[in-house]
Design a protein around this nucleic acid. Structure first.
Lengths: 401, 401
DNA sequence: ACCAATTTTTCCCCAACACGGATTAATTCA
DNA sequence: TGAATTAATCCGTGTTGGGGAAAAATTGGT
């Protein structure tokens, strides 16, 4: 158990204030005080310290209240975009996407490398990532030592605390200490996180879950991932490891177990279709799902059947997740959504039939095929979250007296 | 977000100290200081306050260290058993069990009522519970106004925060405000909790998870329940509601969903056997599973098949739970375990085949058919946990200056 | 142009907390 | 009996957040 010093108290309140400023745009001290239920005195002290550290800025325009308000006008506070810069990366089997963002999580530069990396040796993948990061940083007119932190999001089971990759479809090896590998290569603190967790935070900050502190996200990419937001924070299993939705088992027949990934993974769906030249080409380029969508539109029955079967399986899995976590909203993202309405409707129907009546009204399903950039941005947000809570904020009120 | 006063700080440290004393028996101040990483000064202040409030006692004997230790001997501290008394109850379809415990969770009196209550109207059930509580309290030579809190554990989906029972197999109605019903009847603060959560805490305090702060418990009674301990606390879904394992869906056949409860619930297993007189009688008395065990021992093939099928389904579900929560240990309890080795082995096998290789070593499975009394004791622990954190502890160091 | 009213922000002081160092208490060993 | 040793407490310091008063910065009215 961590002891409760005054320091901890301070850290908590400081984080709350900073987070409130981040969420609610330019905001005055009084409003922070109302939202965070801290006294105006305390808010004033904390914001003074934050201003001192250059984490936030004042702005004298933009008081949204009725313009004809009496009294001293409010001074609006907002995050200082230049307080930090981070790199976020999404590594998928057939592409890598990098972004550099500022302290607000706004994208400064973006780089997509349509390279197939799965089944390459670790060293090659690390090389490619290193190059991508360096390139993207240069594109943002920065140098690497101006970067405060890096987060790499990749599919699979990742131990967040240690940066240990238990297993990933893009690695041949299992049990890779990827965080320290990249940290020593780039000489910048690098953390590794599951791609599903990254996109979960992205939706919490910018996307479909901005208003919620509790929700569940299901990602349907090559790998099936899961992110659980609980009390405004990522819920990480014991030991800090991420979940892998594809590892769930569904089947129960004659002692036959079927893993969700073999039922609803990308290869499971596309495998239903004979791989003629154009299709194979599309899959290779990572456009397999989009191409499948055109085939479905042309009433390719095999694919339609595959898509709806996959949707069914996913709908059941989502119902199970809701049964366990009871979130008010489930955000479903990923490239598989480009299969179109057949797929989505099949998920919805299976979900409806599988969700127990007593909690049928608890959760709403939201679908959105997030852009690649958003995934990388999510990774950047993971890095920013760490910065927010870092001892960096321990700039006490008396640093050099 | 809750604001971080000095008061919160105090509450946290106070709770830590109290919890350390509870866990580690009679313990000296220095050892508390080591375990909790608080300074001896602080520990001394907090224990003084706890002594003042009568929550703990000093004991001068029993310094376990080498008897020939130099220096001032340590004063051992332990929970004051008489600091509070609570009632815990387990309500099942065919029996109700009550216990009165002291502040340490030790049972002072126990009462089992082998009454079938399911499908009775709420008022009747409430009547029976009220009687049971009163009776059990009298058995402990106490009167109701000496009871500080009551917790009732029952199967189903319960909203802990509000005491709202969303659905329960023992109620005909859904959405029952049971906590306030019982509170007004007994005139003692009464909370309602899922029975699975209760037994989870029981195992955390006294049973197979004493050494762990993270674990998962699966209860196989008439209802299939789940309890997740995360960071030493019950993990309650968003909105504080409990999970119902039986609501998980497993099957994916021809758009046919199979709920776990219909595969592995008590009635699903026993329903396989023709209900002759003796068997029906045993089931009525809640000894159905034990009787089934004797039939299995006599090689009743239908039942053996049913048991192993049920075990398979449960094994899969457990594998899914481990995939999601990654606990170091899964404790499996409940009356269904009396089906015997066929059942347990079937669970183990299905689990082994379903658990993904990357996390095969994460969790160990532990089976234990807990006694009825333990369930009720668990409910008592739920009540005690609330007391531990209550503002009752807010007896500041300067109460009446 | 000036003063009153109003609202935001800061300044000053207090209570509570954890903690470090010195002090006192209670024991064993020589 | 006294020295050594270990446990527990007392006292002073620095931190925190909060309440109330004062200062600051504006608008509205006369």
């Amino acid at each position: 158990m961590k002891t409760a010093d005054p320091e901890l108290m301070r850290a908590i309140n400081r984080f709350n204030v900073l987070d409130t400023i981040r969420r609610h745009g330019p905001i005055s001290r009084v409003e922070i005080s109302e939202r965070s239920e801290l006294s105006t005195t305390t808010v004033s002290a904390i914001t003074a310290s934050l201003l001192d550290d250059g984490l936030i800025l004042t702005r004298h325009e933009g008081d949204i209240r009725n313009a004809a308000a009496r009294g001293r006008p409010r001074v609006m506070l907002e995050l200082n975009p230049d307080a930090a810069r981070v790199v976020g990366a999404k590594i998928a089997a057939n592409r890598m996407v990098f972004v550099v963002t500022n302290f607000r999580g706004e994208v400064l530069s973006e780089l997509t490398l349509p390279i197939r990396v799965d089944r390459q040796p670790i060293a090659v993948i690390a090389d490619l990532i290193e190059d991508g990061v360096r390139r993207c940083v240069v594109d943002a007119d920065l140098s690497l030592d101006e970067i405060d932190s890096i987060c790499i999001g990749l599919p699979g089971v990742v131990e967040h605390r240690t940066g240990h990759v238990r297993s990933s479809p893009i690695f041949r090896e299992i049990g890779v200490d990827f965080a320290s590998e990249m940290t020593s290569r780039l000489n910048v603190a690098t953390i590794v996180e599951s791609d599903a967790h990254a996109i979960t935070l992205a939706h919490h900050w910018f996307g479909r879950a901005r208003d919620l502190d509790d929700m569940v996200l299901v990602s349907l990419e090559q790998t099936l991932g899961l992110g659980v937001l609980h009390g405004g924070q990522l819920f990480r299993g014991a030991g800090g490891l991420s979940h892998n939705l594809g590892d769930l088992v569904l089947g129960v027949g004659q002692s036959q177990t079927v893993r969700l990934s073999t039922l609803a993974g990308e290869s499971a769906i596309l495998g239903e279709h004979p791989m003629d030249g154009r299709f194979a080409e599309a899959v290779r380029l990572g456009r397999g799902m989009a191409h499948a969508q055109t085939l479905i539109a042309a009433e390719d029955n095999a694919l339609i059947a595959a898509a709806s079967r996959a949707g069914e399986a996913i709908g059941l899995a989502v119902a199970n997740i809701v049964t366990l976590f009871g979130p008010p909203r489930v955000v479903i993202v990923g490239s598989s959504l480009s299969l179109g309405a057949v797929f989505v409707e099949s998920i919805r129907q299976a979900y409806q039939s599988a969700i127990p009546p007593s909690i049928r009204t608890v959760a709403e399903l939201v679908f959105e095929e997030s852009a690649d950039e958003t995934w990388a941005q999510g990774a950047a947000v993971v890095a920013l979250c760490e910065l927010y809570e870092s001892p960096w904020g321990t700039t006490g009120p008396a640093p050099a007296l």
